[in-house]
Design a protein around this nucleic acid. Structure first.
Lengths: 246, 246
DNA sequence: CGAGAAGTTGAGCGGCATCAATTGTAGTGG
DNA sequence: CCACTACAATTGATGCCGCTCAACTTCTCG
């Protein structure tokens, strides 16, 4: 049970809250181990829980009538989802599937909803989280309209490099390439070709899911020229005050 | 001054608040008439105000280094912007330009920030608003990856028709076609061609900025087949409980 | 070791962008 | 009030990026 609280206290909406509130909210928490491919809920299901990723990865997506799917996000340890259902609409606006086996903590939405009516701190905390998510989603929307597929991959690699903070930068792709391609809004074939185009233009070595860069600078020049932000992206810096470059 | 309060009380974040809070927050409000093309602020400016549109239209956008711009949103009467800057980051994450002459009300962020620390109702209200915005942005992201340019236009027309509620549906494009094209993530030429393609496939008559449909059904079949939502889109229904179809 | 999925590579195609030319429209000043 | 100008909107020609379909290779796991 302690490990649940441990993870929860690292999740964005609980980060800065007093321990007693976290304890209270985690009373009815459950954790479950899931295999890859497990569907947690689908679009339109009545929402009764919100979730925190303890390990593994979760894919949030939508499926159109003709079968194609749009990946909205891929979540990792400490990420939270289903928390944006505090209001009138009580059905999930996306489906959730385990993309890589792991443990998921589920908590009842009713508790959280109740708490937000009594405790301004937690409301503010959720507001901060969702504001950040909105910003991220707007960025992604920008990227889709201004960057090429190749640049979007480069951008993803740069952001991974900043987060993983290895020097010289060696990136480990966090999940398989099919999923990553879908997340970046392209086909697997396009991803594969675009990655090898990156390899030629910039000093990049690829070994399976490991990618070695010599320097971030060259790649960032190529990639960030079609983005409104300056490298390294400010919005990442929030979580990485000691980012690689100032 | 009364007309300011009148508009404010219709804005999403103030909708359900007690009048005295609205009065208090509007004390330091100013309204200004602006001509088309006026820049209210640009990406990176230090944020000191949030805004409510009293009339006209406002374009929120970002500009990349190589000059192309991505339109994030186009706002109309009662819409609010700049309110997502309550936290650490205090520079605007987008630029704002008057797209159609009108009056804009500006209010100091510090007042709002202060109020959110004292008043849970307003925090909840902002949270509700931003949650809704996030959902809208995620939808747009989905459309960009699943729908064709032609379908995106059809989708926009349907949504306009639902909002404007005329029967038989005659839509008035709310702003000029260049802006609309940019908002829908395509070039003006593409927009023009795609619109005339819609005209051929579905029963549509076009007169300048007026578009006459005979029925929404046919268009919705064509358009919504590449969307995860069912027509009429649920998320619009929230604001239109008496939508055209059940 | 074999089956099935992930990943890569090739060929061909279509949608959208780009460039360019023309027409339509609205705003400005003499 | 009209002529002029600037920009919005349309239409055509062309090219490229990314999608689709298909074959093949590599990887993963029972």
């Amino acid at each position: 049970m302690d490990d649940i609280i441990n993870i929860l206290s690292k999740a964005s909406i609980f980060e800065k809250l007093e321990p007693q509130i976290i304890n209270k909210l985690s009373e009815r928490a459950h954790q479950n181990m899931h295999k890859k491919g497990k569907i947690l809920f689908i679009y339109g299901d009545i929402a009764e829980h919100y979730y925190v990723v303890k390990s593994g990865h979760v894919k949030l997506f939508r499926e159109t009538l003709d079968g194609t799917q749009a990946v909205l996000n891929v979540l990792s340890q400490g990420d939270i989802f289903g928390h944006n259902l505090l209001f009138e609409k009580n059905t999930y606006p996306y489906s959730a599937e385990i993309a890589e086996a792991g443990t998921i903590i589920s908590l009842p939405l009713s508790d959280l909803r109740e708490e937000t009516h009594k405790n301004n701190d937690i409301t503010l905390s959720i507001l901060r989280t969702i504001t950040h998510q909105l910003e991220q989603t707007e960025r992604e929307l920008e990227r889709r309209s201004t960057q090429s597929a190749t640049q979007r991959i480069g951008c993803f690699l740069l952001r991974q490099a900043i987060q993983q903070k290895t020097n010289p930068p060696t990136i480990r792709l966090p999940y398989d390439k099919m999923l990553l391609a879908a997340f970046l809004g392209m086909q697997p074939e396009t991803f594969s070709r675009a990655l090898s185009r990156l390899k030629k233009k910039n000093k990049i070595r690829i070994e399976g899911s490991y990618i070695h860069l010599e320097t971030l600078d060259q790649l960032s020049i190529y990639t960030c020229s079609s983005c409104s932000g300056k490298f390294p992206c400010e919005d990442l810096m929030r979580n990485n005050p000691n980012g690689i470059k100032e």
